[in-house]
Amino acid sequence: MGIQEQYRNEAASLLSSGEVKLVIGFGAGSTADRRRPLFACTAAEAEQFVLDSACIANLSAYLVTEGLLTDGKKVAVYLKPDGLRSINILIAEAQLKPEQVVILGYAIENGEVKPLTGRSIGDFTDLGDRIRATTPPPAVVQEAERIDAMSSDERFAFWKEQFSKCIKCYACRQVCPMCYCRRCIVDVNQPQWISTSSHTLGNFEWNLVRAFHLAGRCAACGACDRACPVNIPLRLINYRMGKEVRDAFDYCAGENSGQKPVLASYSQDDSETFIL
């Protein structure tokens, strides 16, 4: 039995036993190469789950949907290592209770889908090693290095061109598991802190606010980059911010759920005499 059938059966039995109220996985998409998020509440609906190397979305973003987990019931979700990372970050930030999430874990290696052993986030003890051993795509590293080597004027011109494409659809925010704020700073309109206009200044404000807000919190799943309808290379920003945090604090977000959020915690031994 392949992993697709194995997980389908598992999802069906989780639902029919009443252990979970919902399973979030993947179904067939509108074309042969697309997969779409699928929500199953019954064993019969679980029959439609698909699992193959095209299932690359990070479904953990749905777990922070307002009201989903407030009844205390459990939800099962198909997750890759980047999704597990997201879960750890959400737990560290007190947005999820580990016991409410049942995990159907898988990894895609050389185009093959492999099961990951464990059902509860605490079971994935090798996640930290896995994250640290994962190298970012060479194209991303090369492009980031090319931009780093630019003069500040050239770099500014590069991002100005890229951000000028932004239409403020907020797809990057909406697909991001870490963008769980019930009211995002751009939606705070009394007063309007961040301009809603998608002119150069407004687009810089939005993209920089998001970059700073994700520093040390990004699971590097690439959901924002894939979602951007105007192809802004958001992967470069997230890679660069992640590298900065790793170099400065030896910190990889989401290695385990016992982590303290790196930019939201302090210790008496910190060299600074202030808290920002």
Binding site: R36, A61, C169, Y170, A171, R173, V175, A227, P229
Partner: peptide, 13 residues
């Protein structure tokens, strides 16, 4: 609409 994430890409495009 269960899986709709609520971005504006469909409307803006």
């Amino acid at each position: 609409a269960l899986r709709c994430v609520g971005c504006g890409s469909c409307t803006f495009l």
